[in-house]
Write a protein that binds this DNA or RNA. Structure first.
Lengths: 335, 335
DNA sequence: ATAACTGCACAAATGGTTTTGCAAAAGCAG
DNA sequence: CTGCTTTTGCAAAACCATTTGTGCAGTTAT
């Protein structure tokens, strides 16, 4: 058992309240320097650590932020996670991670969330069901910063300029003479995410260059395996009917696609060019680095944390911060 | 603000204690069915959720297990993490993740750990400093199951048969006629980890086949970047002085090595064979799947969790469980 | 002598759990 | 039916480990 504030108080010859005042640096309590010394010394000697449960209970805050993201199999989210962890630690917060298996995976009821209360949260804001479940468990008045998609209403969010990213990708492919570009996406048009800006950019570019849009769906998956399956379907087509370029919704899919194309005997980029999205490090460790639209998960998370810090410090009233971060074309060897 | 047990009790017309008994299914308290109904209904109506801090404080347990692992950039650890999360959730536990940036990265003092108390922990047992720091923060009497390395003393642990894995890798390479096999490892001999069984297996095989051992060190890193650098060094050698095979300490390194060799114009496996270790999914998404020694992070974690469950259920006295899991050679296209 | 200040103990509050105890109801022998 | 024991059902209180505001004795300043 660990040592309690009462034992420590006894050893230092003061009351528990005094210990608390000293150790929390409560200057309003005006504890004599000599007493402070005694308390601190005793705390050191006994290896006192305040019980975090009791402390949070009394203070009505946990010094913890929640991080709700969707599947660490995608290194993009690992980057966000590690950044959040780092920033939070430096600011004196802990992180409670709640990671859904996939972007569309549900937590299957609140029992699948950790359930620990947090002071605020950062969440990858796609699966609205997950968000609702999460907020239901938390005091719903905690500040939340959403990631990865523009949101309506007075919420704080940070996202990327996905439309511009899509435009960059399409421009690039078109500039390389591709005229039968297909989009590989987990999302069908008209579904819940019909506002997907990458789709819009794709459609836009098709229209401008007179191409017939061709969307290859991965059944809501965003994995390498899904990409692989898409590539197999493409490889099975007669050479004349194949797209000459694939704009993939993210790098995981693109990596699977790339790999599947090569295995199907299709040359990349000679026969089919491949462009991903996100700029995860994995894409740089193919024999040809993946052409991709780079986004910085670190920047994303940093901005989100800055906003959250602001709210946690009490600024609940200033207008919502809504940030759109730039994207950047990284030309690799697959296009 | 959320509703407290007192408010709920008032609404149901009972005392707070009774509410607690009902909601926790305390049969010893013999609450009349009708009263139970009333309480449950009121709880439902008011959306009551017990405050987890208060609950943990009173019960002296957190229903949370700690998971101390070393760097989710390596998908091997993601697999462990997700497994732990899943098993814990099903058993009614939450997971508090504490992830060091890398296997040798230090947390830099306890402020870098989340600091939330847990009922028990599973930890990847390499960095002894991290472990000490961690245990110092926790009630040191909590049960801990170590992962990934045999440990002395009466501790529970689960590991793989790394020596056998190393032997499999070396046999395989030797069977394919390789006679200038180098080991790529983050650990020098004689350092803190001089017991590293993969080294032992390597040395063993060298001795039996009369090869001169050749250990290429990555400066304690286990990343793709480190592997890439090793490959660059190899590519810079005159063809005659190059190893004809590389046995890499893990898949991350192997992927970097593979990639670097290709970019250096070296053919894999014709000029140099590459074998990894772990069997992470990333290795299967190179144009040639990586030959590797497959280990199941899921099995590892499952066993660890079983043991931890046992201890958490009160079995603290039975002899330590120490489990060594098998490894398996997966032949890909890089050897 | 009175007012202001100093330094700390004290106690209430946080939101639960769990043990104890007691009144009322039920069971049972006479 | 009475008087005793047992059982039932729940309130009450102690406890968990801390924070924080109040109050008060003792000291110093005016």
């Amino acid at each position: 058992m660990s040592v309690s504030i009462r034992e420590l108080a006894e050893k230092a010859g003061v009351s528990p309240g005094t210990v608390s005042h000293v150790l929390n640096g409560n200057t309003a309590a005006r504890i004599a320097p000599a007493t402070q010394d005694r308390v601190r010394r005793a705390a050191e000697e006994m290896g006192y650590r305040p019980n975090r449960m009791a402390r949070s209970l009394g203070r009505r805050r946990t010094d913890t932020i929640g991080l709700l993201i969707s599947g660490l199999k995608n290194p993009f989210f690992v980057e966000i996670m590690e950044t959040a962890e780092r920033l939070a630690m430096n600011a004196g917060y802990s992180v409670q991670l709640d990671s859904a298996p996939s972007i569309n995976g549900t937590f299957g009821g609140h029992s699948k969330l950790s359930g620990w209360p947090v002071d605020g949260a950062i969440m990858w804001g796609i699966g609205s069901e997950n968000i609702a479940t999460y907020l239901e468990q938390q005091d719903s008045s905690i500040p939340v910063v959403y990631l990865g998609a523009a949101r309506s209403g007075a919420t704080d969010w940070v996202s990327f300029d996905y439309f511009e990213g899509g435009r960059l990708a399409m421009e690039h492919l078109i500039g390389r003479g591709r005229r039968r570009i297909a989009l590989v996406s987990p999302y069908a048009f008209g579904e819940d995410r019909h506002e997907e800006p990458r789709h819009a950019a794709y459609m836009d570019a098709c229209r401008r260059t007179g191409q017939t849009p061709n969307v290859l769906l991965t059944d809501a998956e965003e994995t390498r395996q899904a990409g692989l399956r898409i590539a197999e379907r493409i490889a099975a087509l007669p050479a004349g009917e194949r797209p000459d370029a694939l704009f993939c919704h993210n790098d995981m899919i693109a990596i699977g696609v790339y790999c599947g194309l090569l295995r199907g005997g299709i040359r990349v980029p000679e026969d089919v060019a491949v462009v991903g999205f996100d700029g995860v490090v994995d894409g740089q460790f193919l024999e040809r680095p993946l052409t991709t639209i780079r986004t910085s998960g670190e920047d994303l998370c940093r901005h989100a944390f800055d906003i959250l810090s602001l709210r946690l410090r009490g600024d609940r009233e200033t207008p919502p911060r809504q940030i759109v971060l730039p994207t950047e074309l990284t030309i690799g060897g697959t296009s």
